[in-house]
Design a protein around this nucleic acid. Structure first.
Length: 200
DNA sequence: TCCACGATCGGCT
DNA sequence: GCCGATCGTGGAG
């Protein structure tokens, strides 16, 4: 099984598939939450849909650091999205975490989200995932993973190539046709979307 | 300075 | 399926 630090050195396109099945956790004063990553998207510098496409800005600076940092941004006036920066320093690329399967700390995640949410709706979307983790601002953006309250561990089970489904990315206008979204086949915790239909 | 818009979600029809 | 909420970001002027 590949170690996380090894995966984070790779280009986002490779890392995005290898992060499927990895365990994401956050430890705060209120307790521990743990989830399994089931859906990702790759973004890179030559990609018109990527925040790094127009070069480095104050916001996107973490994307240009070496792999292993967080890149967190705010969108639609309401939502935070969590990205894992991958690849070499100077290259602007990252993997967007889109959905995860809750494993531990369900009560805390429900509390973070609003108590009516059932387990299938806790983290099946990028905004929901951030909310479940208790992310309410971008203060962790740019932080090195091992020094932040957020941790990544390698998958506990081997994810076979046949378990991974590929589709176009969601909610973007530029480069909307490129299949750089990846999710675990038949996993009920993946975000709901028409691209989930395998044939096209 | 100003302003259009977005890597979304949930509630309503 | 449609639509409103809500505001940081960065490109234009």
């Amino acid at each position: 099984m590949r170690q996380i630090d090894e995966i984070l050195k790779l280009p986002s396109l490779e890392a995005a598939t290898l992060l499927l099945g990895a365990i994401l956790s956050r430890k705060t004063a209120l307790g521990m939450v743990k989830l399994k990553i089931v859906e990702t998207e790759a973004y890179h510098q030559d990609d018109p849909a990527s925040h790094s496409f127009r070069g480095r800005t104050e916001r996107t600076a973490p994307m240009f650091e070496a792999g292993g940092r967080l890149y967190i941004y705010f969108t639609y006036g309401m939502h935070y999205c969590i990205n894992i920066v991958t690849g070499k320093k100077g290259v602007g690329e990252a993997v967007l975490l889109r959905a995860a399967e809750p494993l531990e700390g369900l009560k805390l995640m429900q509390n973070n989200r609003g108590s009516l949410m059932d387990i299938n709706n806790l983290a099946n979307g990028p905004g929901k995932l951030a909310q479940a983790l208790g992310i309410k601002d971008t203060s962790l953006s740019g932080k090195i993973l091992i020094k932040s309250s957020i941790y990544l561990e390698p998958p506990t089970m081997l994810v076979k190539a046949t378990d991974v489904v590929t589709s176009p990315r969601i909610g973007i206008r530029q480069a909307a046709d490129v299949p750089w979204r990846f999710y675990l086949k038949d996993n009920p915790f993946v975000s709901k979307h028409r691209y989930n239909k395998i044939h096209d």
